[in-house]
Design a protein around this nucleic acid. Structure first.
Length: 705
DNA sequence: GTAGGGTTAG
């Protein structure tokens, strides 16, 4: 008996010798067998349990104590924090204070962490006051936690406000009204008598996340002079700065340092490097870093997935996402908002739907990022109804989700709906940003709402203090051109406050072609060739216009030039999904295995079309061939092949969805209207700028496009 | 007690 009491004594004096749950329970049992459990020894047992993160056991014992001593309180508070039960940690802290127990310094890091995780700045500030009153304001760990609290909670609020400010408003008025988190961080930092690498890392991260990049880098240099070596934490705060600045050279230096320090396989460093290289358009370097990682978590995967998306490598993004799922790495919520845009770009509705299912099963349905991405994915994949459903089901709408649905309706030709959604957004108190204006102007342009567009364009500067950017000018120029106000459009573009790109002029050129104004077209083409001498589309359009006007000499001259420059027409392609596979068709290509059946179908339907009054419009065909051959060429246009493939392979009544890489030609637009009527199918085509919904012989664009 | 990836864009 006495030897066991001695054993207990030694163990109680060295609680760290208890290393396993089994040992702890044995000690507990010994206690109960040999002596009654005093408050002190119970507290020590609780702290042993909590050190082993055994919350349940600790709580059972804790509940037997009538007035728990400080050690017991401290232990359970820490344990709640370890288990992410932050609100219970905080309520325990309140209870402890109510029982007049005076805590010592080592509770505060946990309490402050809980405040941070709960985003409870108020509580955190009152804890700060309490710390100071207790004279514990110099404790290293407590101060580190305080800095983190201010950096996370005050910093975020301040940053958000700055992001939304139009540049014209004087920043002084704002910074004095809002306490900047970084100031509080700085204050705590400067008062610390002793600082360790964590203190430095916290302030570096604080500066970096407040966008004060130079200060962050300055602090890293200062660290060096205080003889504190930057570690993996420091570097992963600093690396995103280089991706933001797209300064690969300095980033590479850091990469070298990381390799020399042997921390290049660190997951955090790894994903920062992947991200940095991707943002500098060096995706191959991202891939290399990724392939060297020893361990890959969902964030390292997603850094590369996001990198692929940022660099337009959508299929690779989807492939890697699949690889991640196969590797049994659970995608976090962020992964979906990276991979959904890839589906949106590729128009892969079946994949997007699968991802949506995954989102629902994974319980991520209330995430505003994911929902916005879903809205965008559905509308870009041609299913505006599904997009609207997701949007209407959302609890809160921010400017991004509003913009996604407005743009969706705009792309589907529902200009009036888009405009009224824009008005609704403003009524709800959500301020439109640059992108929202791009969306509403696009909506106006697709349905020809000239007056409304002017109103919105002017309100940007007059009401919202936003400077119009290239996209806004482009949308207005496009609108004027489509509406036939060609001269007005020309003047507008000439007077833009941003240098117009070739593509802005190009939209006007195609309007000139539609409205048959050769004289202005020549002026516009000159502008285009001045900035982009090899603009294929402009050459083709001009050739067509010269041909239509019988100006054969000019046409021949251009054709010759095109030949010299070695230009070839970008092949027109269309895609259609069938049985979870994407089938691609190139104009005039007869290699698809179903080609015979496709031709048979097209010939049959053509016969009926002609009976109903279809006449081929060959004016858009640029070839030196006879009429008969031209009609054949139209016959082989890629969208017709894709539609035919869709119709012969699906049940009657199934909607046909086709994606095309360039604009539909006039003739196909007419032809598809007939096809939709004859076959009683809804046919949805996405070209490079919008959707056309063909149904019962008419198109949603109302032939305005 | 400290760190990395995300949604809307003619």
């Amino acid at each position: 008996m006495s030897s066991s009491k001695a054993l207990i004594k030694t163990l109680i004096k060295n609680p760290t010798r208890i290393k396993t749950k089994h040992q702890a329970k044995q000690l507990h049992a010994q206690f109960l067998r040999t002596q009654s459990l005093s408050h002190t020894s119970a507290s020590i047992l609780i702290s042993i349990y909590t050190n082993l993160k055994l919350l349940h056991e600790a709580l059972l014992l804790f509940q037997t104590l009538e007035s728990p001593p400080v050690l017991a309180w401290k232990s359970v508070i820490r344990c709640f924090t370890d288990h992410s039960l932050f609100s219970r940690a905080l309520s325990s802290f309140v209870h402890m204070r109510a029982s007049a127990r005076c805590p010592d310094h080592n509770v505060f890091p946990s309490v402050l962490k809980s405040c941070t995780m709960m985003s409870d700045l108020r509580f955190g500030e009152s804890v700060h006051g309490y710390v100071v009153r207790l004279g514990l304001g110099c404790d290293l760990y407590t101060c580190n936690a305080l800095m983190n609290l201010y950096a996370k909670l005050q910093g975020m609020g301040a940053r958000k406000v700055f992001d939304e400010l139009p540049q014209r408003i004087d920043c002084d008025t704002v910074s004095s009204a809002l306490p900047l988190g970084i100031d509080s961080v700085r204050k705590v930092f400067e008062l610390m008598p002793r600082k360790d690498v964590v203190s430095w890392n916290t302030i570096v991260a604080g500066y970096a996340q407040s966008g004060m990049c130079e200060d962050a880098l300055r602090m890293v240099r200062e660290m060096g002079s205080e003889d504190i070596k930057p570690d993996a934490f420091t570097l992963s705060s600093v690396l995103p700065i280089f991706s933001e600045y797209v300064d690969v050279k300095r980033g590479k230096e850091i990469h070298g340092y990381v390799i020399r320090k042997g921390i290049d396989a660190d997951v955090y460093i790894g994903s920062s490097l992947v991200d940095m290289y991707a943002k500098s358009a060096r995706i191959e370097d991202s891939e290399r870093v990724f392939s060297h990682l020893l361990r890959r978590d969902s964030i390292s995967y997603n850094s590369l997935v996001a990198g692929y998306v940022q660099n337009g490598r959508y299929s690779e993004a989807l492939k890697l996402f699949r690889k991640m799922v196969n590797a049994k790495v659970r995608p976090g919520p962020v992964a979906f908002s990276s991979v959904l845009p890839a589906c949106a770009h590729l128009s892969t509705l079946h994949l997007g739907k699968q991802l949506h299912g995954y989102v629902l099963r994974g319980g991520y349905s209330d995430n505003i990022f994911i929902d916005s991405a879903l809205v965008d994915m559905y509308s870009k994949c041609g299913n505006i109804k599904a997009a609207r459903k997701v949007f209407d089901r959302m609890n809160v709408h921010d400017e991004v989700s509003w913009t996604a649905i407005i743009m969706g309706h705009a792309l589907h030709g529902h200009g009036h709906e888009a405009v009224s959604l824009f008005e609704e957004m403003k009524l709800q108190g959500v301020k439109p940003n640059h992108v929202a204006f791009v969306a509403v102007l696009t909506a106006c342009s697709h349905v020809g709402l000239v007056d409304e567009a002017w109103g919105y364009f002017n309100s940007m500067t007059e009401v919202y203090g936003l400077n119009p950017e290239l996209e806004h000018y482009a949308a207005v120029a496009d609108l004027l051109g489509r509406a036939g106000k060609l001269e007005e459009a020309y003047d507008f573009i000439s007077k833009m406050r941003v240098e117009p790109t070739g593509s802005v002029w190009s939209t006007l050129l195609s309007s000139c072609s539609v409205h048959k104004n050769l004289e202005l077209a020549e002026k516009v083409a000159e502008k285009i060739f001045a900035v982009d001498s090899e603009n294929m589309g402009a050459y083709v359009l001009m050739c067509n216009m010269y041909a239509a006007n019988g100006r054969w000499k000019e046409m021949a001259r251009l054709r010759l030039k095109m030949k010299k420059l070695g230009m070839r027409k970008k092949p027109a392609c269309s895609w259609i999904e069938f049985k979870d596979k994407t089938h691609g068709f190139v104009s005039g290509d007869r290699s698809h295995s179903s080609m015979e059946r496709i031709n048979e179908f097209l010939e049959g339907v053509m016969e009926q079309m002609e009976k109903e009054g279809y006449v081929a419009d060959t004016s858009g065909v640029l070839h030196d061939v006879d009429e008969e051959h031209k009609r054949e060429l139209l016959f082989g246009h890629s969208e017709r092949l894709a539609i035919a493939f869709g119709i012969i392979n699906t049940e009657p009544g199934t909607t046909i969805r086709v994606t095309k890489n360039i604009r539909i030609c006039r003739d196909c637009h007419v032809a598809i209207k007939f096809i939709s009527k004859i076959t009683e199918r809804e046919i949805i085509i996405r070209d490079n700028s919008r959707f056309h919904h063909f149904n019962r012989g008419s198109c949603s664009c109302g032939d305005y496009w």
